[in-house]
Design a protein around this nucleic acid. Structure first.
Lengths: 151, 151
DNA sequence: GTCCATGCAAATGATTTGCAGTATC
DNA sequence: GATACTGCAAATCATTTGCATGGAC
């Protein structure tokens, strides 16, 4: 999942950007938490454990680069923080992302993949002429654990 | 579409809230633009035309009330502004909202409704045990007009 | 050695909040 | 008349930016 260290270095060089310890550490922090959805502040705290000199501004600047390189995805759960997660590159038809199941009760966020959306997109192109390129889907509800307790 | 003035007044009273000119005007501004997706600032400007004394803080406070009464929906297009649109109450099975087609080129936002999502939700409940209550779907791509120009 | 990247602190900008005056009920 | 609502200005808080120093190539 994601790119490895060497691939990232190469991507930076290809773009004329410099390889720095900070940039490597930010990507590593995100790669270390493929299932969580980290805020900039959380990434900052994680990297600071290994590299206390890093500044929050550098984390934000690095996130921008990672977004432009399509190595990470942005998720907004409308809780006042923008979150980031490592992209799932190299899974064959890894074209779409952003499918999240958000538990209203415990706040847990799970990702999922589905083909039904492709069908929906085709239908939309057919009926409205809108050509879908990417999508973001958030489903709110109760996860298996919380659903039992509440119902 | 939406609630009318009298229904809104009653909802406010039921909640122990007072009926004020400002609250009526904010709802009217949103009701007047069912297809646009207004920012707080845009609502503020619209209301100010009729009622120059209104303050931006009052608009924000009223938006909170309207959200709690489920009279409006919040949309986040990740452009730095949170937007609001009047809800489509009274359309029979008006349970779900938040389906948007966002043109990457011209920025135009269109809403759509679809049943395919219901199918997807059932599938998710069946396979993961997650009980979906609401959803938000954003599809990014090129609208009929922009698609032609680019392809 | 050149130039980009970093860290810090200050700036930004949407949203919120405190408070004294004002309107609703 | 009591209390909730408003407008204003100040506060908040995530994110961005300016600038001088430091590091990559």
């Amino acid at each position: 999942m994601g790119v490895d260290r060497e691939q990232f270095k190469q991507l930076l060089k290809d773009k004329g950007l410099k390889v720095t310890t900070q940039r490597l550490l930010v990507l590593e922090a995100l790669a270390a938490c493929p299932d969580r959805h980290l805020t900039a502040e959380e990434i900052y705290e994680m990297v600071k454990a290994d590299y206390p000199e890093i500044g929050l501004a550098t984390v934000y600047r690095t996130i921008q680069i990672l977004l432009e390189l399509h190595l990470i995805d942005r998720i907004n759960l409308d809780d006042g923080f923008v979150r980031y997660e490592i992209g799932n590159v190299g899974r064959g038809t890894a074209k779409h992302h952003h499918h999240h199941l958000i538990c209203i009760n415990c706040g847990k966020v799970n990702s999922f993949e589905d083909d039904l959306l492709e069908e929906l997109e085709e239908k939309i192109t057919r009926t409205t002429g809108f050509h879908v390129v990417d999508h973001e889907v958030k489903l709110y509800g109760y996860c298996a654990e919380c659903g039992g307790k509440i119902d």
